[in-house]
Nucleic acid binder design. Structure first.
Length: 114
DNA sequence: CTTTTGACAGTCC
DNA sequence: CGGACTGCCAAAA
């Protein structure tokens, strides 16, 4: 169907199962170009179908999330992923200052395996 | 057709 | 170890 690359990104992100997360680079690779991680983020930023495209399941290669999350805040994303069974882990745990920011998804155990 | 920008990623110092 | 830079590719103006 000759979809543009960004269109393909939506398809891939949509196929991410609940309880798993994928990195921009992985989605880009599944879309056909592992170097297009930025295009993936840009495409998701458009978020043409909120509620249908689980942008919150797409995180950085480090397991962190986008700076301008469009769901209501980084804390919201953590809650959504935890609700799906995804476990979060503090970056390195500096005392109890556990704000919503700094939390990373345990990619070692929750990264989506196509 | 050329230029600019962009939810990244990997490498260098 | 941490911070900064570049590289890559695509869509929009």
């Amino acid at each position: 169907m000759a979809e543009s690359f960004s269109s393909k990104v939506y398809e891939v992100v949509r196929r991410i199962p609940a309880g798993s997360v994928a990195t921009y680079g992985q989605v880009a690779a599944l879309a056909g170009n592992p170097r297009n991680a930025r295009i993936v983020g840009y495409a998701l930023h458009e978020n043409p179908e909120p509620g249908v495209i689980p942008c919150h399941r797409v995180v950085f290669r480090d397991g962190s999330m986008a700076p301008g999350f469009a769901f209501g805040g980084p804390e919201r994303q953590r809650e959504l992923l935890e609700g799906e069974g995804v476990g979060f882990v503090p970056p390195v745990s500096e005392r109890g200052n556990a704000g919503a920011e700094g939390w990373l998804v345990d990619l070692s155990r929750f990264q989506w395996q196509a």
